[in-house]
């Protein structure tokens, strides 16, 4: 499954303020190691995504997510469910 472009762009927009040093976020980036976003911050970002997509996103999805694209795929699955 590939992430929808619109979903991916929205996620990048939400992640960007949490990333320091002007790093340009790409889909393949590892959220923890490349973007230095820890588990606590990930849960806060998830809440922002819930509001942005008016969607319920359980924190359980984080165990399936390593990269930005993984996150977009999980969100897309929930939108389509």
């Amino acid at each position: 499954m590939k992430a929808d472009k619109v979903v991916l762009e929205k996620i990048v927009e939400i992640l960007q303020p949490h990333v320091s040093g002007g790093v340009e976020i790409t889909p393949a980036m590892d959220i923890e190691s490349d973007l230095a976003i820890d588990s606590l911050k990930s849960m806060e970002i998830l809440a922002n995504l819930e509001d942005a997509f008016d969607l319920s996103i359980p924190i359980n999805v984080l165990s399936e997510v390593r990269t930005v694209e993984d996150l977009a795929i999980q969100v897309q699955k929930l939108i389509e469910a």
Binding site: E50, D54, S56, P58, I59, N60
Partner: peptide, 18 residues
């Protein structure tokens, strides 16, 4: 599991509605 903002009742209701 869904989290709501700390002590934020409005946020809890928003998530319950969803």
């Amino acid at each position: 599991v869904f989290r709501f903002h700390h002590n934020d009742v409005e946020d809890l209701e928003k998530r319950l509605k969803r």
